[in-house]
Design a protein around this nucleic acid. Structure first.
Length: 627
DNA sequence: CTGTCGACTTGAGTAAACGATT
DNA sequence: AATCGTTTACTCAAGTCGACAG
């Protein structure tokens, strides 16, 4: 896919391709085109293929084998009636493998002696023994409660204390199993791989409006213990097994409906083309609905993604107006308008999330902008050299801590002081505001504008500015890479995308350092040799010694380059310790910016940038600035 | 206006694949 | 070919946001 897209992109670039609107009547198209891949090759495609024939020939085989579709959905008309598709056919989800009882010899002990043969629930806990979760009180309590529900009355009467349960033998067994899996022979591994591929090709694709599209998650989530993030009150609860009777299937009437496994029934089969999902079920922990939907490379997801960036680009055009307005609103007579304006300022400046209110006790206590509480900010009229500093400290999405100290404008500061008056730490900072009020207001300012658009917009604009600032045309490739990553990092910092420092971080850093040291030694050695060669040349003045000097000079140069590359890597890695780049790359950065900035640098750079596949398959075709 | 639900996006963590290096 | 480290692909939890009922 990567290479296909890459050469596609190069081809397109080279021949100054202009995306052409293709108007197709959908129903007609349905007749004309067959369902199988490869049939829908239009003239454009053929033309391109010819122009880059040799290249394509090399990649062609691979592409065919992978069954990639060259369909350019972005050139087609969208549905305007709110429907998402006309035709949808799929084979239904793949269910989790049935529970295999443990072998008799694997024992569980209670209070050091009594052994049992156990239910699946117990194995879930046994599998997690090494995980920190199993030491947490809430986790244990929730698990134990749900476990008891599943016990026989005999077990119930004997097992009364989780502390006296010894799962270690079961745990050993699972570990040994996963070890055995790793040690499997090549052939066995190959077999499993093939089986997976078969499953993928059978269940991993659907047909939506005449195209074979990849499904994102065609496997139903297996049962297990719920792992919430942060201090989740429900962690450890049993996530029950989903049966066909729980699943609602969505497909078109005129399609071949998926068959439930023998002896079972679907909960329902519906034909709702106003939604994009293929199957859904209700999960038992929060009672929320889970869906089976298409892969990001599909038309339906890609269109949405593309629209998202378009909205952000529209915001670009009127952001100044909006900013002027909210600054004006800081002076409003009405408290709710002031609150709205200050909240919007934070969302815009700090890329905070909207912050919907959540049901207390159902989830971890996290907040976003509108749900900030008094306890989450501190005001400092003066701090170091700066005036009017606000300190934020709260847990955001996924219980990731947001900590930031920023100087704000005086008016904002005064407003915040006003909002804090007569409030307890646990009171809402913006008591007259919620996300729906805010979004309604935003909608009035610009069609399609909501709080999250600011995140997309600010992420994209930051990337672009950073790239402009950091890169310079004749940088070497490693230097360019470093600056791209730095720009990307600036975005990740803005969006507060964090990660736990990799477990192997220290060690790998050390390894890199030793490499650098070695290179340095090599370099000084090479320099000495060069010097010697020069001296030799001076003495003898013959051709041979001259050549030797050249050779040595080249060697020094090469080593210098290598050293620089290593040092760049080290800086990059160090700076990247706690920052996750993937998310912003995937969800916030308009692909066109990456492509724009780098288009001249061809293959190698593009490859090293690690532009996500999804982006390569869509965005690469458009060459224009975000600005 | 408030609360709930449904659909869909965003996000961190993890396992597997990959690819460069020794 | 073994190792190491990175990247990708999955997984599934946790958000956003609009619709709708009362």
């Amino acid at each position: 896919m990567f290479w296909l897209s890459l050469c596609f992109c190069l081809t397109v670039y080279r021949f100054d391709y202009k995306p052409k609107k293709v108007k197709v009547e959908l129903d007609k198209k349905a007749k004309k085109r067959k369902y199988e891949y490869g049939d829908d090759e239009d003239e454009e495609d053929v033309k391109h293929k010819k122009k880059s024939k040799d290249k394509k020939a090399a990649e062609g085989k691979k592409a065919k084998k992978e069954g990639e579709d060259k369909w350019k959905w972005w050139e087609e008309e969208r549905y305007t009636d709110g429907s998402k598709w006309r035709f949808l056919e799929h084979k239904g989800p793949v269910f989790a493998p049935a529970y295999e009882p443990l072998p008799e010899k694997v024992k569980f002990y209670y209070n050091g002696k009594i052994k049992f043969v156990f239910l699946e629930v117990a194995t879930f806990f046994a599998k997690m023994l090494d995980h920190e979760y199993t030491t947490k009180d809430i986790f244990r309590k929730n698990f134990y409660k749900d476990w008891r529900k599943e016990m026989t009355s005999e077990e119930k009467s004997i097992i009364t204390d989780l502390k006296k349960c010894d799962f270690s033998e079961m745990n050993e067994y699972f570990k040994a199993q996963s070890e055995a899996r790793k040690q499997m022979s090549k052939e066995e591994k190959q077999k499993i791989k093939e089986e997976n591929e078969r499953l993928l090709s059978e269940y991993g694709f659907c047909i939506m409006d005449n195209h074979r599209e990849r499904i994102g998650n065609f496997r139903i989530e297996p049962p297990g213990l719920f792992r919430g993030r942060g201090d989740h009150p429900k962690m450890g609860m049993l996530k029950r097994r989903i049966r066909p009777e729980d699943v609602i299937i969505n497909c078109s009437k005129d399609s071949k409906h998926p068959k439930p496994p023998p002896g079972t029934k679907w909960k329902e089969v519906r034909h709702d083309n106003k939604v994009t999902w293929l199957a859904s079920w209700t999960e038992n922990i929060q009672g929320s609905i889970k869906y089976i939907m298409l892969n990001p490379s599909s038309r339906i997801k890609g269109e949405k993604d593309w629209q998202k960036y378009e909205t952000a680009r529209r915001l670009k055009k009127c952001v100044d107006r909006i900013r002027t307005q909210y600054r004006e609103d800081w002076k409003s007579k009405e408290m709710r308008i002031r609150q709205r304006a200050v909240a919007l300022y934070f969302i815009d400046k700090l890329a905070l999330r909207a912050g919907n209110e959540k049901e207390e006790g159902e989830t971890a206590d996290t907040v976003g902008c509108c749900s900030l509480r008094v306890e989450h900010i501190k005001l400092f009229p003066k701090m170091d050299e700066q005036e009017y500093v606000v300190e934020f400290d709260f847990l955001g999405k996924d219980s990731i801590r947001y900590y930031n100290k920023i100087p704000v404008e005086k008016r904002v500061f005064k407003n915040l002081q006003l909002f804090l008056e007569n409030k307890q730490p646990e009171d809402d900072l913006f008591d007259r505001l919620n996300t729906s009020i805010l979004n309604k207001h935003l909608q009035e300012l610009m069609d399609g504008l909501t709080a999250k658009v600011f995140r997309t917009y600010n992420a994209s604009i930051t990337l672009q500015q950073q790239l402009k600032e950091l890169t310079c045309c004749d940088d070497s490739i490693p230097a360019k890479l470093l600056s791209y990553n730095r720009a990307n990092r600036a975005v990740a910092i803005l969006c507060n995308h964090q990660r736990a420092p990799p477990k192997t971080f220290e060690k790998s850093m050390q390894n890199l350092q030793t490499k650098i040291d070695e290179k340095q030694n090599q370099l000084s050695a090479a320099r000495k040799q060069l010097k010697a060669a020069k001296a030799n040349h001076k003495a003898s003045h013959d051709d041979k010694s001259k050549k030797a000097v050249e050779v040595k000079r080249k060697a020094v140069q090469r080593i210098e380059e290598q050293l620089m590359k290593l040092q760049m890597q080290a800086t990059d890695r160090e700076e990247n310790k706690q920052i996750a780049l993937g998310t912003s790359k995937l969800n916030y950065l308009d692909p066109r910016i990456s492509v724009m900035g780098k288009k001249r640098k061809k293959k190698k750079l593009l490859k090293n940038l690690n532009v996500p596949k999804k982006i390569l398959s869509l965005g690469v075709l458009f060459f224009f600035f975000f600005l």
